[in-house]
Simulated scan of single mutants.
Amino acid sequence: MNEQLLSLTHTGEEPEKYLHSVTPPVFLNSLHVYDRFEDYASIDPLREGEYIYGRASNPTVHILERKIAELEHGSRAAVFSSGMAACTSAIMAVCKAGSHVICMRDVYQPVTRFLENFCIPKLNMAVTYVSGNDLGEVEDAMKKGASLMILESPATFVFCVVDLKAIADLAHKYGVRTYIDNTCMTPIFQNPLDLGIDIVMHTMSKYIGGHSDLIGGVLVSKDDELMKQIIQEMREWYGGILGPMEGWLAIRGLRTLHARLMQHQSTAMEVAEFLEKNDKVRKIYYTGLKSNPQREIIEKQQRGHTSLMSFVLDASVEQSINFINNLKFFGKGCSWGGFESLALMPLYKSSQEELDFRNVDRQLIRIYCGLEGAENLLEDLEQAFNRL
Rank of each mutant, 00 (worst) to 15 (best):
L254A: 09
P154S: 08
W248K: 09
I63Y: 00
E318G: 06
D140W: 07
S75N: 13
S310A: 15
A268V: 11
I63P: 00
G304C: 07
F385R: 06
W336S: 10
L226E: 04
A250P: 01
Y368H: 11
I284C: 04
L71A: 01
E233P: 01
G175Q: 06
V161T: 14
R282M: 11
Y129T: 05
W248S: 09
A155G: 08
M104I: 05
P293N: 09
C369P: 00
L115D: 01
D356H: 11
G210E: 04
Y51Q: 03
D194I: 05
M185H: 07
H172L: 12
R105N: 13
T128S: 15
V218N: 02
S341C: 12
N292W: 02
E276K: 12
E273I: 09
C334Q: 10
V176I: 14
F114Y: 15
A155H: 03
V111T: 14
A155K: 02
G74W: 00
D279W: 01
L261A: 05
P346L: 06
V33M: 10
S350M: 11
N124Q: 15
R260D: 06
S291T: 13
Q302I: 07
K173C: 10
S291W: 10
L342Q: 06
L388T: 09
P110N: 12
N292C: 13
T128P: 06
A77H: 01
S21T: 14
V138G: 02
A250V: 05
E50I: 09
R36L: 14
G145Y: 04
Q352W: 09
K96F: 08
P187N: 08
G209L: 05
A250T: 11
A126L: 09
L249P: 00
F37T: 11
I91S: 04
